[in-house]
Amino acid sequence: MIEVQGLTKKYGELVAVRDLTFKVEPGRIWGLLGPNAAGKTTTMRILTGYLPATAGQATVAGFDVFNEPDAVKRSIGYLPEVVPLYLDMTVSGFLGFVAEIKQVPAAKRKAAVARAVESAGLKDVSHRLIKNISRGFKQRVGIAQAIIHDPKVLVLDEPTIGLDPAQIREIRELIKSLRGEHTILLSTHILPEVTQVCDGVVIINEGRLMASGSLEELAASFERKDGVILKLRRGGAEEAALLRAIPGVEKVSAEGNELRVEWSRGRDLRDDVARLALDKSLGIQEMRSLASIEDLYMKVVSGGLEP
C-alpha cells in the first residue's frame, strides 16, 4: 500500500533522509521508529506531498507521489506533528471544512462528519470551539480530520506526543480500532508504542534505514542468541560469576546493576537463572528477554548497530 524506493531528501547540505526503502502492506499498522531528528517527519511529509523528495520514488495506494500528487492526497489522511486546527472553529465546523477541501461530495459531507465524530469519540464536544477543548480531544480532532474522507492510507506523525498516560492509551485504542479499514503508518520515538500498536516497524536513524519488517520477522532475524537481561539490587563481578557458573550460560556481561546473560539458541535457561537468583537472594528487580526489539532499538539509537 505504501512503497518507498531509494528516497532521499536534502535540505541544502543537510541530508535528512538517505536512500530509504521500505514497504507497508495493506490493512496493517506500521510504525516508523527512530530517535528525534531521525527523518521521520520528513519521510511523512514527502509521502503526503507536502515536500518534494530530492531523489527516489514513493507510491501510496498505487499512485506515484511525485507524478500523481492529487490522487495521492485524495487517498491519504494525514495527521501532522503539529495538529492543524483552526482554534476559532467548532469541532464539527472544522471537520465540515476539511471534508470540503478533501473533496467529499456535498451530499455525503454531513454523514462523513458524523462518522468521523463517532469513530474519534468526539460526540460530546462536537459543538464546542476547538480552542476550548482539552489536548486529548484536540488530538482526536486531528485524527478525525485525517479519516474524514475515508482514505485508504493514514499517516500519523507522533499521534500520542504530549498527552497524559490515560489519553495515550485512548489514542492507541482509537488507532488500533482503525486497523483493517485503513493502512496506517505512524511515527514515534517511543518503542512500547510500536510493540503495543503496530504489526511491523521501520527503524531509521539519521535518515538511514536500520531495519524494517514485521515484528516477528525482526525478532527472529536479530535473535542470534537467546538470553535475559537481569536487573538486580546490586550487580557486580560476584553475581556475574555465580550466573556464569550455570551450565549452558556462555557469556555474562554487567552494566551497572543490569546483567546480560546469554546462551546459545534453542535452549531456555530462564528457569535456571531465576532459581539461582532466588536461591542466592540476589534481589531480582526485573528480568526481560534479550534480543527483544527493545535491545535492537537501543542498539540503533546508541549507534552500535550498522545498517
Partner: peptide
C-alpha cells in the same frame, strides 16, 4: 505559524 498550512497543502487543492 499555526501549522494549518500543512493541512491545506496536503489536501487536493
Amino acid at each position: 505559524k499555526s501549522g494549518t498550512d500543512e493541512l491545506l497543502y496536503t489536501s487536493p487543492l
